[in-house]
């Protein structure tokens, strides 16, 4: 098993069937998990913020930080490995709210909204998601099977 860790603002795409993509500490951040079951290619993005508009330089240095730069890049990297959009299964986890925040301060919800906006425009449906609440999450994608698990505390559940 090849454990590939995706950090905050990170993005990994691989066709290595022994790989397990993993990202920890999903608070208000969201993990977007993409998988092509025909080509056995998996990708994972861990984005922190919804839009890069006010931070173009940071977006250039770390496009995975933002939904509007990270999600397109995730798909471009999948396409580069031969994947086609209709074949890609998308799942998501995270977007939590830990301080009872609302409005501007509910970054988790804003991240989720921006993700939904991008996918609606791209005509991509999310197959499954585990978002919101106030649990910190860890997401895993097993590239050989396409299985996704979400862990909160000691509880691990399939997504």
């Amino acid at each position: 098993m090849n454990l590939v860790t995706v950090g905050i603002g990170g993005l990994e795409v691989t066709g290595d069937r022994s790989a397990v993509l993993i990202t920890h500490g999903l608070g208000s951040c969201i993990a977007v998990i993409a998988y092509d079951p025909f080509r056995k290619v998996g990708g994972m993005l861990h984005f922190q913020l919804p839009t890069s508009t006010l931070s173009p330089e940071r977006a250039r240095e770390s496009p995975g930080t933002f939904a509007d730069t990270g999600i397109p890049m995730l798909f471009e990297r999948m396409y580069a490995l031969g994947c086609r959009k209709p074949d890609i299964i998308v799942k998501a986890a995270g977007g939590g709210n830990f301080h009872g925040d609302s409005g501007t301060f509910d970054i988790g919800k804003r991240n989720h909204t921006m993700m939904r906006k991008i996918f609606w425009k791209a005509q991509v449906l999310v197959r499954a998601e585990d978002v919101g609440g106030s649990r910190s999450r860890t997401a895993r994608l097993f590239v050989d099977s396409g299985n996704v698990t979400i862990q909160s505390g000691s509880e691990v559940a399939p997504l």
Binding site: T104, K109, R110, T113, M114, R116, K117
Partner: peptide, 8 residues
């Protein structure tokens, strides 16, 4: 506005 139109 956020849920229906993705506007903050």
């Amino acid at each position: 506005l956020q849920d229906a139109a993705f506007v903050f």
